[in-house]
Design a protein around this nucleic acid. Sequence first.
DNA 1: ATGGTCGGCAACCGA
Length: 256
Amino acid sequence: MKVATFNANSLRSRLHVVVPWLQTQAPDVLCLQETKVQDVDFPHEALRPTGYHCVFRGEKKYNGVAILTKSEPQDVAFGFDDEPLDAARLARARVGPCLIVNTYVPQGQDRQLPAFQYKLDWLGRLRTYIERHARPDEPVLWMGDLNTAREAKDVYDPDRLWGHVCYCQEVQEALKGVMDWGFVDVFRQHCDEPGHYTFWDYRMPKALERNLGWRLDYIMATPPLAKRCRTCWIDRPARALAKPSDHTFLVAEFDI
DNA sequence: ATGGTCGGCAACCGA
């Protein structure tokens, strides 16, 4: 099974990347975040040639998640149980034997603002949600833009960036709170080096060329799946380079 | 140096 995650930063403006990527990489599952499209405007026609099943929940301008699958997904649901808020940040579906959880974790804006506490609380609610819907001895994949750099080697300048909402003790502990349930960061299982990033801020001049990046996107697997993870890599397709999006694809293959 | 540029969508907000 091959799975991938990509923060699209507008699905409609990234169709020239996503459609060819699906056709050449042919993953079983692609999780998208920041689709930035209301459900009524979802680009069905553009995606039809790929043959993928699409389940999605969007908002007018912000957020939005989608799960694209080769086989028909089962038990699809959006948002936290019985909570109307943030349905466009959390999607889940059963694909074959796997439970897929796709999240766009709130960025947090600034540590002094309520948005940051909301981010920490959000990760706490996610832990409760996962406890309710899954068991760590089952095949579960938690994927997406987690807006958290786990370690110093996950950012280009750890000394200067320490204290950022995506790289500080509070957020790392909140993420660990979810991982402690039973998730393995499968990219780190295969690669221990610094300098492998999934996000480059395009407000910084030549951030991509200078590799001034962050590792904010993850594929987290429960132990029975992590044991069967053959490879995990960061894929930045040439089409994305032509008009750079700020995130890139993260891909993993499992022997199941 | 505490900036910068996108995307949505029509004035700023979020990242």
